[in-house]
C-alpha cells in the first residue's frame, strides 16, 4: 500500500463530521483520518486525466425541461405523515430545542 500523501488533518475530519452532523469519538477521528487519507490518495489519480477542455456531466440523460402541470393531487391520508415519527405531539412532529 503506498504512503498516504493527502494532507487531510484531524481538524478537517472533525469539521467535516460536524458539517455532516455525525458524532465522532476522538479515536474515530484518527481512524477516519487515516482511512480517508488513504482513499483520497487513490482518488488523486483523477488528476491524471486532462480535463482542461472537458465539460462536466451532472446529468447523464439528454432530457431537458421535464415539468408537471400545476395540478393538485391527493396528499397522504390523515396521520400517515406522522405514523413513523419518533416524537410527536398532536399532529405535529416534535423536536428538542435547537440551541445548544
Amino acid at each position: 500500500m503506498p504512503e498516504p500523501t493527502s494532507e487531510l488533518s484531524s481538524r478537517e475530519v472533525e469539521h467535516v463530521a460536524r458539517l455532516a452532523r455525525l458524532g465522532i469519538t476522538p479515536d474515530e477521528v484518527l481512524k477516519y483520518r487515516d482511512q480517508l487519507r488513504n482513499i483520497l490518495h487513490h482518488i488523486e489519480a483523477l488528476n491524471r486525466a486532462d480535463t482542461s477542455k472537458v465539460p462536466a456531466t451532472a446529468h447523464p440523460l439528454e432530457e431537458r425541461n421535464v415539468m408537471r402541470e400545476d395540478r393538485r393531487e391527493p396528499c397522504l391520508p390523515a396521520d400517515a405523515a406522522l405514523r413513523n415519527a419518533p416524537s410527536r405531539e398532536d399532529s405535529y412532529f416534535k423536536v428538542k430545542a435547537i440551541q445548544e
Binding site: I43, L46, N47, A49, T51, V54, T57
Partner: peptide, 14 residues
C-alpha cells in the same frame, strides 16, 4: 478539485 473534476472525468468515460 474533486467534485467538478470527477464530473469532467465522467464526460471522458461517456
Amino acid at each position: 478539485a474533486y467534485y467538478l473534476q470527477a464530473q469532467k472525468v465522467r464526460t471522458l468515460i461517456i
